[in-house]
Design a protein around this nucleic acid. Sequence first.
DNA 1: GACCTATATGCACATGAAGGTATATTCCTG
DNA 2: CAGGAATATACCTTCATGTGCATATAGGTC
Lengths: 136, 136
Amino acid sequence: MQRPQLIEVYNCLCDEKRLRIVHLLAQSPLCVCHLQDILGLTQVAASKRLAYLRQRGLVESRRHEQWMIYSLPAKRTRELDWQLRCLQDCLTTHPVFGDDLRKLKDRQSDCCWVAGVAGAALTASVRSSKSKLTSR
Amino acid sequence: MQRPQLIEVYNCLCDEKRLRIVHLLAQSPLCVCHLQDILGLTQVAASKRLAYLRQRGLVESRRHEQWMIYSLPAKRTRELDWQLRCLQDCLTTHPVFGDDLRKLKDRQSDCCWVAGVAGAALTASVRSSKSKLTSR
DNA sequence: GACCTATATGCACATGAAGGTATATTCCTG
DNA sequence: CAGGAATATACCTTCATGTGCATATAGGTC
């Protein structure tokens, strides 16, 4: 929504879970259920953290069928850009954050990841594989 | 003390006063009374924030005669370096932070600033001008 | 329309950080 | 050594924030 000033960016990133969310979204847009799954959060905890980030302009969301796809904003402030570069440089080798990336890879064939990245059309083949998601 | 990990750096910088302290110390080492003065903090508030930053490794302190001189650590982690570059790039034109720098300039002839920067010897001339500081 | 899945939000509670007061510590000066 | 200035810290109160539960909303399927 609003353009993030530096302090608000810092406020967003000073919580481990929020930082992991932004780090993941820097790789790819994701739906709530995947973030929830990768981070081991309850639905409420994931949703509230995403709302927190959205209200401060660090992430954007769009609905795609039954999923909300979260992504980093298309237009980024200089402040946010600095942080994204910093995460890229400082976190990829970190055990927890590296693990997150690995878990992300494992899920990149799932339907709502495809939906998130493709953005528009959801093919019949994807639609038929949706049952895979029902795991929690 | 300890080496600051990224989340701890963010925790330190997500408070406006702490961010202003780090921004000022990026320009020059300073004693507590100057930080207190520039930021308009009480003695306790300034001291507590500096303790917070010190415990997380973002600043170091050394005593010089009756003053504690705070400065950024000589050896900086990659995480901290990123943030210092970011502050440099994002804050200098910001009204509040720019103001701080101006106030800093005004005080650069004062005794404990000289003590902080020179570090070692405190000349007699400086010593005699100390009364300037007593303004709370 | 009934029901399911995915997601958001209001409410109540617990926890952590910030601010203030009082006090302790250290150094300096006479 | 007495007194003052600079700084730190313990204790208490207050306020913000995270968390869980219950519930609301929205889209999809049959």
